[in-house]
C-alpha cells in the first residue's frame, strides 16, 4: 500500500513538473514580448517609418532606409528561393521514393540546419569577393539560400497531402504528368504552399548574421542592387551594441516592428493552416 502511494506521488510530481516546464518556457516569451513592446512603443511613430536615421546626439529619426532595405532583400531572396524551393518540393513529392528525392530531402534538411553565419561566409565568397563590393544582391542571395529548404519541405509536405485520387483523375483524362501537377495538384495545395512561403519570409526577415558581410549596412537611402544596403536587423544590431541611449531606443522600436511583422505572419499562417486542415476534413 505504502509503495503504491509513493508511486502515485511520483506520478503526480511528474505531471506537475511537466506543467511547470510549459510555464518556464512561456516566461521568456512573455518577457521578451513585454520588453519589446514597452521599450519600443515610445519611439514608434510615423516618422520611424518615413525618416532617415539621425546622427548621434539628435533624438528622433527613423529607419526608412532599413525598412526599404529589408523589403528589397526579402524580395530578392523570394525571387530566387520560390522557384527553386517549389520545384524541388514538387520533385520530392511526385517522385517520392526515388534516390534523387531522398537525396533532396536530406539536402534540404541539411541546408536548413546550416548555421546562418556559415551561409553568410559562403555568400561572401560567391557574391561579394569576386566583385569586391558588398551588395543588396549578395544579401538577397544569402537569405534566398536559407529560404529554399523551408519552402521545399513545406511544398513537399502539402503536395503529399493532396489525395492521390486527384492525380489519377487528371492522368486518366489524358493529362501529362506536368499538366496534372500544374493544373490540379499544385492548385489544390496552393493555399498551403503560400502559407509556407509566408513563414519562410517571416523567418528570413529576422536574419542578421548572413547580412553582416553581404549586404553590409548603409547609412543612406539606397535602392541600388549592387550597393550595400541597410536592413532592419543589421541596423538594430548596430544600434544595440552602440553606447548611445537614443540609438538604444531606436533599436527597441526596430525590434518591435520586426516582431510585429514576424508574429503577424505566424498568426496568419496559423489561421490559414487551421482552415486548410478543416476543409480537408
Amino acid at each position: 500500500m505504502n509503495r503504491d502511494r509513493l508511486r502515485r506521488l511520483i506520478s503526480s510530481a511528474f505531471v506537475g513538473a511537466c506543467a511547470l516546464a510549459v510555464l518556464l518556457a512561456l516566461v521568456p516569451l512573455a518577457m521578451v514580448l513585454f520588453f519589446v513592446v514597452r521599450q519600443g512603443i515610445g519611439s514608434l511613430n510615423l516618422a520611424f517609418f518615413t525618416s532617415m536615421p539621425r546622427p548621434v546626439g539628435e533624438a528622433g529619426g527613423g529607419m526608412a532606409n532599413a525598412i526599404v532595405g529589408t523589403l528589397m532583400l526579402t524580395g530578392i531572396a523570394s525571387l530566387m528561393a520560390v522557384p527553386v524551393g517549389v520545384m524541388s518540393g514538387i520533385y520530392m513529392s511526385e517522385y517520392a521514393g526515388t534516390w534523387l528525392a531522398i537525396a533532396l530531402r536530406f539536402a534540404a534538411d541539411t541546408l536548413n540546419g546550416v548555421p546562418s553565419i556559415v551561409i553568410g561566409v559562403f555568400a561572401y565568397g560567391i557574391a561579394v569577393l569576386p566583385f569586391k563590393q558588398f551588395s543588396a544582391l549578395a544579401g538577397g542571395f544569402a537569405l534566398g539560400i536559407m529560404m529554399i529548404p523551408i519552402i521545399a519541405r513545406t511544398t513537399e509536405e502539402l503536395l503529399l497531402l493532396v489525395p492521390n485520387a486527384l492525380r489519377e483523375g487528371a492522368l486518366a483524362l489524358g493529362a501529362t504528368r506536368a499538366r496534372a501537377v500544374f493544373t490540379v495538384i499544385v492548385p489544390a495545395a496552393l493555399p498551403g504552399i503560400i502559407t509556407g512561403i509566408v513563414l519562410a519570409l517571416a523567418r528570413i526577415a529576422g536574419e542578421t548574421a548572413p547580412l553582416l558581410f553581404t549586404s553590409f549596412n548603409n547609412r543612406f537611402f539606397s535602392r541600388a542592387l549592387t550597393q550595400p544596403i541597410s536592413s532592419l536587423t543589421v541596423q538594430i544590431y548596430t544600434y544595440a551594441i552602440s553606447p548611445y541611449d537614443d540609438w538604444h531606443r531606436q533599436a527597441w522600436a526596430g525590434a518591435l516592428v520586426l516582431v510585429g511583422f514576424v508574429l503577424t505572419c505566424s498568426l496568419l499562417a496559423r489561421i490559414a493552416t487551421a482552415r486548410i486542415r478543416r476543409l480537408r476534413g
Partner: peptide, 22 residues
C-alpha cells in the same frame, strides 16, 4: 474511380478539364 475525385474547381471546369488540356 471508386471514390469520386472531382477536382477542387467548379462543376463546369471539372468537365471542361480534359477538353482544355487535350
Amino acid at each position: 474511380f471508386q471514390k469520386s475525385n472531382p477536382f477542387p474547381k467548379t462543376i463546369f471546369e471539372n468537365v471542361a478539364y480534359g477538353l482544355r488540356i487535350n
